[in-house]
Amino acid sequence: MARVKLYALTTCSHCKRTKKLLDEHGVDYDCLDVDLTQGEAREQAIAEVKRYNPSCSFPTLVIGDKVIVGYRENEIKEALGL
């Protein structure tokens, strides 16, 4: 299974829906809530997100080498083979 990483904000409903979708399907993923980071860790997190998503918006979901920006249910399911 491809590595799955979600960059999110704890206040963002679309990020919450993405987490819910992943949880409901038992997907194993890492999640980084960037709004909870500070200082050096935040700068690093922003740099990381920017690498995958130049506009640094949320949610940014990385599935292997595929990047999905925004809560796009069909695209996410397809990329996960669900």
């Binding site: 904000l9 206040t11 963002c12 409903s13 709004d35 640094c56 918006s57 949320f58």
Partner: peptide, 14 residues
């Protein structure tokens, strides 16, 4: 966000 920052920052932006 109002509590955190003192203003109502958009929930879906950093």
């Amino acid at each position: 966000n109002k509590q955190r920052y003192g203003y109502m920052a958009c929930p879906c932006r950093l």
